[in-house]
Structures are given as structure tokens and as C-alpha cells.
Design a protein around this nucleic acid. Structure first.
Length: 546
RNA sequence: GGCGGCGUAGCUCAGUUGGUGAGAGCGCUCGACUCAUAAUCGAGAGGUCGGCAGUUCGAGUCUGCCCGCCGCUACCA
């Protein structure tokens, strides 16, 4: 039975390069999950895009003396380049700068306003009298009241690490003009989050398969009591507020519009395929499922705020699951754009084969804990696990067959119980791997496939076809045929993780590059093999040393 | 400070509702094999399950306290 599945992936800021933490935290797991479901015959819609709004973009623009739009137009293509390079298979990766996105955002804003979930309120904020604009906290600098660091930002002191309120700063000054900012009242729309506490709690309690840290986090947030949250900001970059009673120079809060991106991207995709209503099948049909792949820092927005917005709007599906990952760290430090720790995805994609990079990350996805990763670890895993176990298995079997059976798949005689057991075990592996992937235990799914490869290696060592060949060619043919069937099955189990080499292996086996179903395709005895070549290149120890 | 998560072999991690001898992969040691990208297969060594107390016939698994790491606590998303 075909299932509709929305794979919603966190929207990266288009304010800098992305690193392996992003890849392992959201994009690669989402892609593996999506590829599996497509192969299994489900209808997947996988969307995301560059988040063009928010202060990180405007800060970057100010630093470089260019417009926010120019910042996005620089980084968005770079990000698209990553997805091409390593095969992250979005149906659409757009941006939040589109007219469509603004329209969808404003529609949700107006509906929530109409239903009374958005109310006006005031807050007090610093205002730069020279620039004549309100200042976000991170645009205010001053002396830290805790450690006396003279250049603390209004949101956090970089010296002592404490979180601050801009009004705590001693001698505050504007980062734009250096002027002394003054406090001024400002009016905004607030989202009545507290009204959703009970339905949110009930909904979350029903989620028995969610990751523990995700569910507890969300429930804890509700139990603490959620404040009404401002959904507009004093900023001139973002989606325009669709009512004019706040005055000019207000925009919709970037987070309000960012999560709406999942919906607006689905609508944009539907328009692009010239079936404008197609998005409804993923959003309005209660049988459709939706999975949000995000990092752990995004949990509150996807498990509380976005569901509350959806509840308030009405008629759209709530998340089926939010399998938030922890972080990949480098020597214990979180990779981040601002700290410069961790090189970009593009840097690695230039130096590693895409499937090798995917393997190295997939093997350490931070599904339960922060996971530490170094370049040496990556090289070791690629060489010792991927190349040695799987690449070598394929190579030893296919080169033996190629060389001794004239470039064809050997034609088998009667199978022994050992042969039958091996093939049955591989079929079982496909079931096991499917169960893991559906439960979003992607490391375990990969492990299952690699264990199967080891099993075939053991089978070969015990059957020794290279010896049998000299005495009983038919038996040797049977052994190799059996091993080829096993490889054919393992290829399917690995294909969500290793799409590039799975396609090449399909060509080598003579069954075509595409994996057409979550089952082992039989490779017919006597059929032609493609050109047999190694699947992966073994890396030098210094492959990532520059 | 408050909230959540995590702390298990050298490294990266699994360990359902507490129950017979604590696991995997990689690394290491030894052995087998040589078709294969010095690849593969087998065996083995290696852990007071962060610390202390408690509940229980029995705890890595529950409770309390403590220590450490990460995240959230922000007009950063």
C-alpha cells in the first residue's frame, strides 16, 4: 500500500557555508529516509530551502556592506551545489524570498489573526536615534555586567558566555552608529501560545515512538508555561505584515515564516509540476505522514510552536515525528558557522567520493548522543569498513566471475542448504534494515547491511570458489551465482545510503542502475556483466590534510 | 541558576517494560586463507556500565544527591 510521506528538512540560513554537522544532523538522514521510502513504493515529497530572513542575514549584510538579498544570492547557490555533489534528493529546495512564500505566510498570519490567536501587545526595546530604527539585541554592544568585558553583545557575552538582556549592558551603544540607544515602546503581534498548551500536551503524549529527548523537551516546555510570543519584529528585512496598523518597518518574525516554508515549498513544488493542488495530498489527507528532520536546537520550534500554528490554522497535518538529531562535534566542539569549526560540506565533497562521504557520516549519525568525529575517523571508516568489507566483497566476487565465466553471471547448478541459507539471510536483512529505517534508526539500518556483507565474505571463505573452480566448475559457478544474488540484495539495502555506487553496481551486475523496489532482484545466470571495476577508492592517510 | 538530554571496553556507539555469564563495529594480539583495493574469515585480550547512597530477592536499567559534557532558557534561528 502506497503511503504519502512528507520529508521536511530544516531550513539553513543562507548566511554562510554549511558543515558536516548540518549534513549529519538533518540533510543526510532526511535523504536516506526519503530514498528508502521512494524505493519502497511510497510517494515522498521532500522539501526545504534557504532561510533568507532573520538577523544573521542582516548582520552579514551589514558587515560586508551589501544587501541581505545579495547575501542570500551568494550562499543559496553554494548550498544547492552541495545537494548536487552528494546527492541530497530534494523535490524542491527553494528560498523564503519568493512571492509564494510571502503569500502563504501572510495567509497563515491573517487566519490566526482572524481567529483571535494573534493579539497586539507592546514591549520595550532599544532604539538608535541616529539610524532611526529599533535594534535587535545583537545590534547593541556594551560592557558585560558579569565580567566587565567591554564588547559584550546584547544577547550574550562572548567573554563569559552568559546570556544577557540588552538592557543589562553597562554603557550600551549601537553597533550601527555607535550612538547611545534609548529605550522605546514598540508594538507587536503576539501569538497566544498558552491557549494551545492542553491540546499540545495531549498530542505529544500520544507520540509513543518519538525520541525521548525530543518528547521530554517539548513536554517540559509546556509544563514550564509558555509565554505569548512576539511574531513580528522591528526590522526591515522579512515578510511584510499583511495589516497596516503597526506602522512601517515591521516584519513577520523570521521563525514564524521559516516553519511555514515547509508548506509554502510544497505549494511551490505543486505549481512547478503544473498540478497546483497536488500539495494537499501531503498536507490535508490525515493518512499522509510528515517527518521533520532538524537539529536538536530546533526542537521547540518544530514540536511546539509550529504544531500550535497548525492547530490554530486548522485543516493541516501535524508532524508525525520530529526525529531531531544531536550534534556532530569536532574534537568536542560544536561545529558552527560563526565559530569556523568544521570545514564546509563543499570542502569535503571536493576531496571524497560522494558515497564515501555519505558513508562516513551515516555511520556516526548523532541519533542519541552528540557524536565526535575527526578526519582520521572518517578516513578509517571509509577504508576499514566501506572499502574493505563491501567494496572488496563486490570486487572479489565480480572479478572471479568475470575472469572465469567470460564476463557473464555464472549459471548455477542445484543449491545446497548453505547457499539457500545465505540468500534467505540476505532477504531477512532487507526486512531488518527496512524496520530500522522506518523507525529512523539509520545507523542500525546501515549496520545491518554491512553485517550482511561480512556474512557473504564468511560464506566465500568457507566455500572457497577459487579452489572449487579447478575441480568442479559447476559447483564454483553455483557459489558465485549465490554470492552475486547476495550482493544484489545488499545493494538494495545500501542504496538509500550509497546511491551513486549502488547505481554503478547495478550496471556491473547488468540489471541497470535504478533500484526499483525494496527486494532483492535476481541476477540471471548467463546474463552479461557490465565492466567490472572497483566501487570505491581507498584513501591515503593524508587525504584530508590540506 | 532553571529545564531537557547524555556520561557503558583504546575509539565511535547499542543496550525493549529492572532478571540467568554486560554487547557491536573499528583498533589491538594470535591463528587460518590468498579469489580480492596488504583485502577476507576465525579466536582472544580489554569494561568496578561517571561517583556516592537508596528501593528491590535482583539495577547499566528505578529514586535521591554530587561531578562532567551538550542543548534550550535570546528580538539566534
Amino acid at each position: 500500500m502506497s503511503q504519502r510521506i512528507l520529508v521536511a528538512v530544516a531550513w539553513p540560513y543562507a548566511s554562510g557555508s554549511l558543515h558536516l554537522g548540518h549534513l549529519g544532523g538533518a540533510y543526510l538522514p532526511a535523504d536516506i529516509f526519503a530514498r528508502y521510502h521512494r524505493i519502497a513504493g511510497n510517494q515522498v515529497l521532500m522539501v526545504s530551502g534557504s532561510d533568507a530572513h532573520g538577523t544573521p542575514i542582516t548582520v552579514k549584510a551589514d558587515e560586508e556592506g551589501i544587501t541581505p538579498r545579495e547575501v542570500v544570492e551568494r550562499y543559496h547557490p553554494e548550498i544547492l551545489g552541495y545537494w548536487d555533489a552528494i546527492g541530497i534528493s530534494f523535490d524542491l529546495f527553494t528560498t523564503t524570498m519568493t512571492e509564494n512564500h510571502a503569500a502563504v505566510t501572510q495567509d497563515i498570519f491573517l487566519r490566526l489573526l482572524e481567529k483571535g490567536y494573534l493579539v497586539k501587545g507592546t514591549s520595550t526595546q532599544f532604539f538608535d536615534p541616529e539610524a532611526e530604527r529599533f535594534l535587535p539585541d545583537r545590534y547593541v554592544e556594551g560592557t558585560c555586567p558579569h565580567c566587565n568585558y567591554p564588547r559584550a553583545r546584547g544577547d550574550q557575552c562572548e567573554n563569559c558566555g552568559r546570556t544577557l538582556d540588552a538592557t543589562d549592558l553597562i554603557d550600551p551603544r549601537s553597533r550601527l552608529t555607535g550612538a547611545t540607544p534609548v529605550l522605546r515602546e514598540t508594538e507587536h503581534y503576539f501569538f497566544k501560545l498558552p491557549e494551545f498548551a492542553d491540546p499540545l500536551r495531549e498530542w505529544l503524549e500520544s507520540k509513543t515512538t518519538w525520541r525521548r529527548h525530543v518528547k521530554n523537551w517539548a513536554l517540559g516546555m509546556i509544563d514550564e508555561g509558555m509565554p505569548e510570543r512576539a511574531m513580528t519584529r522591528d526590522i526591515d528585512w522579512g515578510v511584510e505584515v499583511p495589516v497596516d496598523d503597526l506602522g512601517p518597518s515591521k516584519r513577520i518574525y523570521v521563525w514564524f515564516d521559516a516553519v511555514i516554508g515547509y508548506l509554502s515549498a510544497a505549494k511551490e513544488w505543486a505549481s512547478l509540476i503544473e498540478d497546483p493542488e497536488a500539495w494537499r495530498k501531503w498536507w490535508e489527507d490525515p493518512a499522509a505522514e510528515s517527518y521533520y528532520f532538524v537539529g536538536k536546537d530546533n526542537i521547540p520550534f518544530h514540536t511546539v510552536i509550529w504544531p500550535a500554528m497548525l492547530m490554530g490554522y486548522g485543516g493541516l497535518n501535524l508532524p508525525t515525528d520530529v526525529p531531531a538529531n544531536q550534534y556532530i562535534t569536532f574534537k568536542g566542539e560544536k561545529a558552527s558557522k560563526s565559530s569556523g569549526i568544521g570545514r564546509s560540506i563543499g570542502w569535503y565533497a571536493d576531496r571524497l567520493e560522494p558515497d564515501a562521504l555519505r558513508y562516513a557520516i551515516a555511520a556516526v549519525l548523532p541519533e542519541q548522543n552528540d557524536t565526535d568525529l575527526s578526519d582520521d575517523d572518517m578516513i578509517r571508516r571509509i577504508n576499514e569498513e566501506l572499502v574493505a568489507t563491501w567494496g572488496n566483497l563486490v570486487n572479489r566476487v565480480l572479478s572471479l566471475s568475470d575472469r572465469n565465466f567470460g564476463g557473464t553471471v555464472p549459471e548455477p547448478g542445484p543449491l545446497t542448504t548453505t547457499d539457500e541459507a545465505l540468500v534467505a539471510s540476505i532477504d531477512k536483512t532487507l526486512e531488518t534494515a527496512a524496520g530500522h529505517i522506518e523507525a529512523i534508526e539509520l545507523r542500525a539500518g546501515l549496520r545491518a547491511a554491512m553485517d550482511a556483507a561480512s556474512e557473504v565474505n564468511a560464506y566465500l571463505n568457507s566455500e572457497e570458489p577459487w579452489h572449487v573452480l579447478k575441480e568442479d566448475e559447476k559447483r564454483a559457478a553455483t557459489i558465485l551465482w549465490t554470492a552475486i544474488q547476495a550482493i544484489s540484495g545488499i545493494r538494495v539495502a545500501l542504496s538509500p545510503y550509497l546511491p551513486w555506487t549502488s547505481a554503478r553496481l547495478g550496471e556491473m551486475l547488468g540489471i541497470g542502475p535504478k533500484v526499483t523496489g525494496w527486494e532483492r532482484p535476481e541476477v540471471t545466470g548467463g546474463s552479461e556483466l557490465g565492466t567490472v571495476e572497483t566501487l570505491f577508492t581507498k584513501l591515503d592517510a593524508d587525504a584530508l590534510d590540506d
